[in-house]
C-alpha cells in the first residue's frame, strides 16, 4: 500500500476509534440501556468495576487511556511514515 493510502487509512481508523471511545460511547449506553441497567424505576447498574458502574468505567478509560494509546500509536506510525517519505521509500 502506498504511503498516501496508509496515511489516509490510519487517519480514518484513528478518527473512528477516538469518535467511538471519546464521543459516542454514551450513545451506546443510552440506546443499549438494558445491557447496562436493571429495570425502572431504580435502573441499578448490572455490573461494577472497582466499585464503579461498568459503563462509567468504560467512559473514563475509553476517553482517557484508550484515546491516549490511539494517539501514541498514530504518532509513532506517522514518525515512521514520515522518515520513509523523506528517504523516498514510501511511494
Amino acid at each position: 500500500m502506498s504511503a498516501y493510502r496508509r496515511e489516509c487509512w490510519l487517519t480514518a481508523i484513528c478518527f473512528i476509534l477516538v469518535t467511538v471511545f471519546g464521543g459516542i460511547l454514551s450513545v451506546v449506553f443510552v440506546l443499549g440501556k438494558d445491557l447496562f441497567f436493571g429495570p425502572e424505576p431504580v435502573y441499578a447498574a448490572k455490573s461494577h468495576v472497582v466499585g464503579l458502574p461498568t459503563h462509567y468505567v468504560f467512559l473514563l478509560v475509553g476517553s482517557w487511556l484508550i484515546v491516549t494509546a490511539v494517539g501514541v500509536f498514530y504518532a509513532w506510525y506517522m514518525d515512521r511514515l514520515e522518515r520513509a517519505v523523506e528517504r523516498g521509500e514510501a511511494g
Partner: peptide
C-alpha cells in the same frame, strides 16, 4: 452529573482528533 463527565470525556478525546486531523 453524568452529562458533565461526558462533556469532559469528549473534550479530552478531542485532542487526539486534533492530532490526527490538524496539528502536524
Amino acid at each position: 452529573f453524568y452529562l458533565a463527565i461526558a462533556l469532559y470525556a469528549a473534550f479530552t478525546a478531542s485532542f487526539v482528533i486534533m492530532l490526527v486531523v490538524a496539528a502536524p
